[in-house]
Amino acid sequence: MDRPTPSGVESLPPRASQGERVLVIEDEPEVRMLVVDVLRELGYSVEVASNGVAALPVLRGPDRIDLLVTDVGLPGLNGRQVAEIARQQRPGLPVLFMTGYARNAEVRGDLLERGMEMMIKPFNIDDLAQRVRRLIELASDQP
Rank of each mutant, 00 (worst) to 15 (best):
S7C: 00
S7I: 12
V9I: 13
E10V: 02
E10F: 03
L12C: 00
P13A: 12
A16K: 07
S17W: 00
G19L: 09
G19S: 08
E20T: 11
E26V: 08
P29F: 11
E30P: 00
R32T: 00
M33A: 15
M33E: 14
L34I: 11
V35C: 08
V38I: 15
L39N: 07
G43N: 05
S45G: 14
S45V: 10
V46Y: 11
E47V: 15
A49P: 05
A49Q: 05
A54K: 14
L56P: 10
V58D: 01
L59S: 05
G61D: 12
G61C: 06
G61F: 08
P62I: 00
R64H: 03
I65K: 02
L67M: 11
D71M: 02
D71E: 14
V72N: 04
G73C: 05
G73N: 13
L74H: 06
L74A: 04
L77H: 07
Q81G: 07
A83I: 10
A83Q: 09
E84D: 12
P91N: 10
V95A: 02
R108S: 09
D110S: 11
L112W: 10
I120G: 01
K121I: 03
F123Y: 14
N124H: 04
D127G: 03
L128K: 02
Q130I: 01
Q142P: 02
